[in-house]
Write a protein that binds this DNA or RNA. Sequence first.
DNA 1: CGGCAATGATAACAGTGTCAACATGAAAGA
DNA 2: TCTTTCATGTTGACACTGTTATCATTGCCG
Lengths: 179, 179
Amino acid sequence: MKESYHHGDLRAALLEAGLDHLNRHDAETLSLRALARSVGVSATAVYRHFPDKTALVAALAREGLARLADAQKKAAAECRPSESAFAATGRAYVRFALENPALFRLTFASAPVESADEPTEAARMLRENAARRLPDGASAGHVEAEALRAWALVHGIAMLMLDGQIAADPDLVEALIPA
Amino acid sequence: MKESYHHGDLRAALLEAGLDHLNRHDAETLSLRALARSVGVSATAVYRHFPDKTALVAALAREGLARLADAQKKAAAECRPSESAFAATGRAYVRFALENPALFRLTFASAPVESADEPTEAARMLRENAARRLPDGASAGHVEAEALRAWALVHGIAMLMLDGQIAADPDLVEALIPA
DNA sequence: CGGCAATGATAACAGTGTCAACATGAAAGA
DNA sequence: TCTTTCATGTTGACACTGTTATCATTGCCG
């Protein structure tokens, strides 16, 4: 298994190293050179796969978003019919943030989640659940507002906990996200 | 008005320059050297007033927090008795974030707001308003949870708008923060 | 007036993102 | 099979950053 001049799949290796870094350190200490070093490649090789640092960060953000969506979908699927799927996905959102603080931050500090034309799977689920909480025949505007409020609530809880403003306590998460 | 060797009040000048920078650019581009340059002083003079960059940033965060509290207090004072003071302070919170995006972010990304022993003025107001929304004799825990939910809601709205996840539209703010 | 502490300046170091120029090698065309 | 091409890596350099050690100036206090 000789070290060959060409890496094979440097792009994927860099992203993996980036995610690995975010598991243990925060996003500000993420350095292209360090990433390249950890993968065993020169600093500038990165530029064959990403135009600049923000592009690499954006790719990490996409991965973070995908993982968050996965966590939510899984939570909704595993939730017993006796409890609200809405609350379950909301709690999963906060739990993901607490378990992946750096990645979560980077995901949202980076780029808009929803490309305006094509709504995300997660966004669709969100609206459905919001509609279910309102009286039948609620206007689309009301549904949208309810959905955004729910999103903002869990996002705010996550952020305030990550920033140390309120205790990052799973029990508190339960208490704050109503069934 | 000769340029003297000693500056007079370099610390204040640096903070002012920092706030000025945050008015037009984001926090990642905030550089000690650039700040020093803009004030007309050598790069290392900063270290006579702040042990390191994070200390300067923390000072900026304190200022940001104070301004946010001011904006909220003013909003509560100017709010007509016909409308909820709670909603008014919440909307002021989001408005402040939209008007001072970089400062707002830095304020919360930096250090915990509330030193656990001594509750902030803003925190006290928050709890009062939360209690007013609950039936009389609600438990302290319920009041606390209601207060945190309200904070998280406005904080989430602010963050999602700053991150471009939802439209940074003042009308939407009105719609999302219930009276 | 003399000295001291506060406050400044210079020089240097390690580290960063990024560009230009050059090197390698895998795959495609002859 | 030989050759050429082009994606991929490398080296070297530049401007910038935070930070430290060392030296310079000066306002204030006795």
